[in-house]
Design a protein around this nucleic acid. Structure first.
Length: 280
DNA sequence: AGTCGCCTGGTA
DNA sequence: TACCAGGCGACT
């Protein structure tokens, strides 16, 4: 699932390949995914790529932004003459564009940017740069790891809530960028039961968890994100973090830290993987 | 704070 | 063939 490390991986790739390109044309196949007016971005040049939580912002030089959220299965893939020979992951759904390509951007220098999305939960939005901060998605985004989420702020956030610590980690309004994979792995690394009430963590546990969050996100980024499902980077290649999952997806596998077995339960309506023997 | 709906491919 | 995957907004 695209979470902070996956979206950041994509941002780095877009920063490298997309900046400087001019948008010549936009073709929309699934209208509910593309919001706003394509006219507003045609002819504009890409200035910079930013990220807020799991959201991507493509800043253009004409006062408009292209905002993208991948939700569960969104992909943003860049192709040009130089990258045409690179092998595309099967997860892209075949030669582009294909039946999962819902928006195609034609760029100068014979380059293309494709938005693919099997389940069509994601969106691509054209918005005036000055209105960006009014989007609820960005306005309500909580502090982010590696940015403004300090240990003090983290302690403050968890001390105020009775919800399960795992649900809190995934709540974008409280903390930005963490989804199911990294929430599971951070709690495993910190040795904390995902069902514990947030405010009942000790200061020592809070610190451990804070550091674990940074650690697993850093690892995710190091391996180019997790491609266990549909994530691929801007060149259509898979990340490797799925080979380094600590707990996520490891139902009935041996715990890597003790003699226990990883179990799958539901917490906050989501699949949750943990070791009942060493996560307390 | 908890549940549902949006979607569709893959799997039991 | 029913069910599961989960980010996030809407709703209760």
């Amino acid at each position: 699932m695209p979470e902070l490390p996956e979206v950041e991986t994509l941002r780095l790739g877009l920063q490298k390949y997309l900046v400087g390109h001019k948008i010549l044309d936009v073709k929309v196949n699934v209208s509910k995914i593309f919001q706003g007016s394509a006219k507003d971005i045609i002819g504009a040049k890409v200035k910079e790529i930013k990220r807020v939580g799991k959201g991507l912002i493509i800043e253009l030089d004409n006062g408009f932004d292209l905002v993208i959220h991948l939700k569960l299965t969104g992909q943003v893939i860049y192709r040009d003459k130089k990258t045409a020979d690179l092998k595309l992951s099967d997860k892209a759904g075949g030669q582009l564009p294909n039946k999962f390509t819902h928006v195609t951007f034609a760029l100068d220098s014979d380059a293309f940017l494709f938005y693919n999305d099997v389940r069509r939960f994601g969106w691509v939005k054209v918005i005036k740069d000055s209105k960006l901060s009014e989007l609820p998605f960005f306005k309500e985004m909580g502090p982010e790891p590696f940015k403004d989420l300090t240990l003090e702020k983290f302690e403050d956030i968890i001390s105020k809530s009775l919800i399960a610590i795992k649900v809190l980690l995934m709540d974008q309004k409280r903390i930005g960028g963490i989804g199911n994979i990294y929430a599971n792995d951070a709690l495993f690394l910190a040795g904390i039961d995902p069902r514990r009430k947030a405010k009942e963590l000790s200061p020592d546990e809070a610190k451990k968890l804070y550091e674990a969050v940074l650690e697993v996100l850093k690892n995710g980024l190091k391996y180019g994100g997790a491609s266990d499902v549909d994530f691929i980077n801007v060149l259509g290649q898979e990340g490797k973090y799925q080979d380094y999952f600590l707990a996520y997806g490891k139902n009935q596998k041996k715990c890597s830290r003790c003699s226990g077995t990883i179990e799958k339960i539901m917490v906050g309506g989501r699949g949750t993987y943990f070791c009942p023997a060493c996560q307390r």
